[in-house]
Design a protein around this nucleic acid. Structure first.
Length: 603
DNA sequence: GCACGGTCAGGTGT
DNA sequence: CACACCTGACCGTG
């Protein structure tokens, strides 16, 4: 572990100055530099050099201003930021669902900007964070590598306030007139030269606007341009958010869901110089060279890019653990030791025994199209009168049980109500973790609400499961997976008007015979996904190919935006002291998830 | 079919 | 106030 002092010895003088400087402007203090909230994804990404200004940790480092109670900024923790973003994403999906289900009467315009609507609602209800004075340097609760899909997401957590403008800036304390840049968004819309750690950013203004018949003009050294210039002299770090256009992998079979751009917080940069040159339209534009400050974690996206350039992936030990069963290959990677992944028989589908008397489907919906009319679709009715997915295939919210369309439905396979039955759509891989055996991660960015994979295996009754001792690690008790709204946007029910809320359609005959999925011998990638006390996935009960509510499919969905290489986890949801061995003694299993919310025990 | 460019409607901040 | 902004959705072209 590094003390602050040691840490500063790693960096050169200039940097130390900057470091202190940025702290000052952040009006906080460093409290802890050695623990990572999201440790898992960095575990195997080489040595960490924590020499860059980091957001102070709450609650020990509350803003000295002690903001008024009306503000949401009293204690901005990492989990507060995650919660805020999840709320945005959940509200967004809910409002989009509402908008999509509206019958498009000619004359009544559908709302095209759900992101804006969501933003207004969150602002009205004071759900945004870091809303106070604009921040220079690190932002409380935000970490390098965090991902977003809408510009307003940057705004609601105080990372970059303006909706459209690429440059945000601040009046300097004490110098009323002087402005410096606080953050920039680089979406590649301008001619940026991209050298990983160098960003050449174009100034603002002067560009022609065809819609308004405005011709190109020379840029002026004002506003954002002036702020960036001043940042050179003041040596104040500027936050950089990079927008990457979605590179649809060649093996991506997902034709639906065209989410355009992923914004990634790329950390702090210094503006080192600026100049003028002729722009695309013949006008003079300003160019600013920005350099990424050393010691910040490499973006996972870069790591993936790098490894793709190699012929053989480092640590690769199995090319495809699914052996062709999944439509995408799932490789196994171990950069730590020589251990190979455990042997098992890969199955993408659940294995039911005839002794369980599975209740078959009785019928399906009669929709001719893609079940877009939730009033006519019988499956939508079963789901409480709505299709539980958006048209891009994201689940709207976690429910007790979701009914997808099935083999007896008239709708085509491309129907909006068939999401998890189509299998994985992200490039997943299993990898050896430092402290929790094998884990699962993705090489792609995963947007909140996306389907990840099914937890498959052999279906066992409780009695059968009890007889198979010694492999608890691969058991999933179906009763345990009460899908809760908590994990996909806490407080959604308080924010959305009651008539929009889903009706709970749980079978209340819970105290019947329980079932378990045993993935020890037969299973899928799902069996490698570890538990976490602050997980990024949620387990959702789904029915589609049979009607037996006692034994739903367990489908895992993303509960937030997940950057590449971040370990995927869900909450195993054990109640401590309720797990017994064959002699009836309480079993104890420690949790090594490493999150700040860790309870210490898995069961 | 798709990638790309033009167009348009926006909210917020200056 | 008017205006600009590295949006985001949509619709036409190639």
């Amino acid at each position: 572990m590094l003390s602050n002092h040691n840490m500063l010895m790693w960096v050169h003088d200039d940097f130390e100055y900057l470091y202190r400087n940025s702290l000052e402007y952040n009006s906080g203090q460093i409290t802890s530099l050695d623990d990572e909230q999201n440790a898992p994804e960095h575990d195997d990404m080489g040595e960490k050099m924590l020499s860059v200004p980091r957001a102070p940790r709450s609650p020990l480092s509350v803003s000295p201003l002690g903001r008024a109670a009306a503000s949401n900024d009293n204690v901005v923790t990492r989990s507060k930021v995650r919660e805020t973003l999840r709320l945005f994403q959940a509200m967004f999906r809910k409002l989009l669902q509402e908008d999509e289900s509206k019958s498009r009467v000619p004359g009544s315009l559908p709302n095209k900007r759900i992101d804006m609507v969501t933003y207004s609602e969150m602002k009205k209800q004071n759900k945004c964070v870091n809303t106070g004075k604009k921040i220079l340097g690190p932002v409380l609760g935000v970490e390098v590598g965090d991902e977003f899909h809408y510009r307003v997401e940057l705004s609601i957590i105080g990372l970059h306030r303006p909706f459209q403008s690429g440059i945000d800036y601040v009046k300097m304390d004490g110098k009323k007139k002087k402005i410096v840049a606080s953050s920039v968004v680089s979406s590649g819309g301008y001619d940026d030269v991209d050298n990983f750690d160098i960003l050449v950013y174009s100034g603002q203004g002067g560009n022609p606007d065809g819609a308004k018949k405005k011709a190109a003009e020379d840029q002026k050294l004002e506003r954002g341009n002036l702020a960036l210039k001043n940042s050179i002299d003041e040596k104040i770090p500027v936050r950089v958010i990079r927008g990457f256009k979605e590179t649809k992998g060649p093996d991506s079979l997902d034709t639906r869901g065209k989410m355009g751009i992923t914004y990634t917080y790329d950390g702090l940069y210094l503006v080192v110089r600026y100049w003028q040159e002729k722009g695309r339209y013949g006008n003079n534009v300003f160019m600013f060279e920005m350099r990424r400050m050393p010691g910040q974690p490499q973006l996972a996206l870069r790591e993936v890019q790098k490894s793709k350039n190699l012929k053989v992936r480092e640590g690769l030990c199995v090319d495809d653990i699914s052996q062709g069963v999944e439509k995408m290959r799932i490789c196994a990677v171990n950069t730590l030791d020589s251990e190979m992944p455990p042997q098992f028989k890969y199955t993408a589908k659940m294995k039911y025994a005839s002794s369980h008397n599975l209740i078959p489907l009785k019928g399906g919906c009669e929709c001719k199209g893609k079940c877009s009319d939730s009033k006519k679709c019988l499956c939508a009715v079963k789901n409480g009168g709505e299709i539980p997915f958006n048209r891009n295939g994201d689940i709207v919210e976690a429910k007790t049980l979701v009914y997808e369309c099935g083999p007896l439905c008239k709708c085509p396979p491309s129907c909006y109500n068939r999401v998890s039955q189509h299998g994985i759509k992200y490039q997943l891989e299993i990898f050896k973790t430092t402290s929790r055996g094998w884990g699962v991660r993705s090489l792609n960015s995963i947007p909140s609400g996306s389907f990840i994979c099914e937890y498959t295996g052999e279906l066992l009754s409780e009695k059968e499961a009890d007889q198979r001792t010694g492999n608890d690690e691969y058991l999933f008790d179906l009763g345990r997976s009460k899908s809760s709204n908590q994990s996909m946007g806490a407080g959604l029910s308080n924010v959305i008007s009651p008539d929009l809320q889903s009706t709970d359609i749980s079978g209340e005959n819970a105290e019947e015979e329980g079932f378990t999925i045993d993935a020890f011998e037969y299973g899928s990638v799902g069996r490698f996904i570890n538990h976490s006390c602050s997980p990024n996935l949620v387990a959702q009960n789904v029915l589609y190919d049979h009607a037996d509510e006692r034994m739903p499919h367990i489908m895992l969905f993303a509960a937030e935006n997940i950057p590449p290489l971040q370990e995927l986890t869900y909450d195993y949801n054990y109640v401590v002291d309720t797990v017994h061995d064959s002699e009836g003694n309480i079993k104890i299993k420690k949790c090594y998830c490493g999150s700040t919310e860790c309870t210490g025990r898995m069961y």
